[in-house]
């Protein structure tokens, strides 16, 4: 028996919206400790990693580990039928399920919707991601990071991110010209202004803005985002989801020819 009930079903809707442009199908692994998922885009440039802890769910039961192979597009179609204030319950009784049941219930418990999504058997393509002590960690407003990436992507396809003890600089060079946006360390009480820089070693890395813009679809999951970088390593962009877990994106850097 597997059953997971999310009080705020809208969070699940937002997660699926945030990854649906990046990955087409995913294996969700359910275990006693919660749900996890890892999937790469078809070009193997970006990876999404989701972890939801069992104690973040209103009800959670998983008697034995199961893998749920899902088409994100089809999952998205079913989740469109859930209201933003609904609870969402995932359920299956089978040991090797061929479908996953969904229950959506509104706050007044006056409307209950029930759907079943056919599952797929997917080759798992799990990568071992080493635990990394990142040499530059930036925590800032997710909306502000999203705005910067969006603005710069009209000038260039790539952005160079350079950290120093005091600031992080986003630079672009394109056919029409060049520019940069520098964000300084700022210990404001307001989330929207706050910028936390933990710089052990400065880094300078270049990334494709197209992917960063896709990651930023997760902006509504968290008011802050953390950018974790080490020289010659993939960027890790993390959105923490309150008590539930985290949504992480990894992006391979652009390297010199």
């Amino acid at each position: 028996m597997f059953e997971a009930k999310l009080q705020q079903g809208v969070i699940f809707k937002k997660i699926v919206d945030a990854i649906k442009d990046l990955v087409k199908s995913v294996n969700i692994d359910a275990s006693t400790s919660g749900l996890s998922m890892q999937a790469m885009d078809s070009a193997h440039v970006a990876l999404v990693s989701l972890k939801l802890n069992e104690n973040g769910f209103k009800d959670y039961r998983c008697d034995r580990p199961i893998t749920l192979g899902l088409s994100i597009e089809n999952l998205s179609k079913i989740l469109k039928c859930a209201g933003n204030d609904d609870t969402i319950t995932l359920q299956t009784d089978e040991e090797e399920p061929s479908s996953l049941k969904f229950f959506f219930e509104n706050q007044q418990a006056s409307k209950i919707s029930e759907f079943s999504l056919n599952l797929m058997s997917l080759d798992s393509e799990s990568l071992g991601i080493p635990d990394t002590d990142y040499s530059s960690v930036i925590q800032m407003s997710s909306a502000e990071f999203s705005r910067i990436c969006k603005e710069l992507s009209s000038i260039s396809e790539t952005v160079e991110i350079e950290t120093s003890k005091e600031s992080v600089k986003f630079s672009v060079q394109g056919d029409i010209g060049a520019g940069s946006i520098t964000v300084k360390n700022n210990q404001s009480d307001k989330d929207v202004d706050r910028v936390d820089l933990q710089i052990d070693q400065p880094v300078k890395l270049t990334f494709a803005l197209r992917y960063l813009n896709m990651f930023n679809k997760a902006v509504s999951l968290s008011s802050t985002v953390s950018l974790n970088m080490s020289e010659e390593n993939p960027l890790m962009v993390e959105y923490k989801i309150d008590d539930l877990g985290s949504l992480r994106f990894y992006l391979a850097p652009k390297i010199s020819d």
Partner: peptide, 13 residues
């Protein structure tokens, strides 16, 4: 510059 692949950083499990 060229785009690198995640496969060159992370190993298969």
């Amino acid at each position: 510059m060229k785009q690198s692949s995640l496969l060159s950083f992370f190993g298969n499990v």
